[in-house]
Amino acid sequence: MRIGELARRTGVTTRALRYYEEQELLTAERSSSGQRHYAEAAVDRIRVIRQLYAAGLSSRTIAELTPCVVDGRATPELLQRLAVERDHLDRHIADLVDTRDRLDSVIAGASATLRTGAPCGRDATAASPESR
C-alpha cells in the first residue's frame, strides 16, 4: 500500500510515517519512481509503535525493542530491556493512580465544602480575613 493509504488506515500523518522510516522503525519498498510501498503488516507495526510512543518510550528505545515486540524475535538482552521498560511503565501508572486519588480527594473535599457554603481554592484565599 502507498503512504497515503497507510496514513489513513492508521490515523498517522504521512510526515510521521516518514519520520518512523528515518528512525528505522518502519521500512518501505520503493517503486522505480521512488514511491513508498508498505506491506500489510505495517498497519500493525504502526499501532505498536504508537502504543510505545504513548507509553513514553523514545524512538531509540522503540527501535531497539521493535524486533522483540513486533516480530517476536527475542534475545535475553531484549527481554531484560522489555522488563525494565515494563517496570518504568508500572511506576508511571502508580504515579498516575496516586495523582488521580489525590484529585478524587480534592473533589470530595470541595463537594463537602460547597455543601457547607465555605469557599475553596483561590476564591477562599481572596475571601479570607487573613489575606486582607
Results as ranks from 00 to 15, higher is better:
M1L: 03
R2Q: 10
I3S: 00
I3D: 01
I3A: 01
G4W: 04
A7F: 01
T10H: 01
G11L: 00
T14D: 02
L17S: 00
L17K: 01
R18Y: 03
E22L: 12
Q23A: 09
Q23E: 14
L26S: 01
L26R: 00
L26E: 01
E29C: 03
E29P: 03
S31D: 10
S31C: 02
S32Q: 07
G34R: 00
G34Q: 01
H37S: 06
Y38N: 04
Y38P: 00
A39H: 08
E40Q: 06
A41G: 12
A41P: 07
A41S: 14
A42S: 08
A42T: 08
D44A: 09
R47F: 03
I49L: 05
R50K: 15
Q51V: 15
Q51F: 15
L52D: 00
L52Y: 01
L52W: 01
L52H: 01
Y53T: 11
A55H: 09
A55L: 15
A55G: 13
L57V: 08
S59L: 06
T61G: 04
A63M: 02
A63P: 01
A63Y: 00
E64W: 04
E64K: 10
L65I: 04
L65F: 07
T66K: 03
T66I: 14
T66N: 03
P67R: 08
V69E: 03
V69C: 06
V70C: 15
D71S: 13
G72K: 09
G72I: 12
G72R: 09
R73F: 08
A74H: 07
P76H: 02
Q80C: 04
Q80D: 07
L82H: 07
V84Y: 05
E85P: 04
R86D: 12
D87I: 12
D87Q: 11
L89K: 13
D90C: 13
D90Q: 11
R91W: 05
H92A: 07
A94M: 04
D95R: 10
D98G: 14
D98S: 13
T99A: 14
D101C: 14
R102Y: 13
R102N: 15
D104N: 15
S105M: 15
I107G: 05
I107S: 13
A108K: 11
A108G: 12
A108M: 09
G109R: 05
A110F: 12
S111P: 10
A112Y: 12
T113C: 12
R115M: 09
T116G: 02
T116H: 04
G117P: 00
P119E: 11
C120M: 12
C120T: 12
C120W: 13
C120N: 10
G121E: 03
D123F: 06
D123C: 05
A126P: 01
S128T: 14
E130M: 09
S131R: 10
S131T: 11
S131Y: 08
R132W: 05
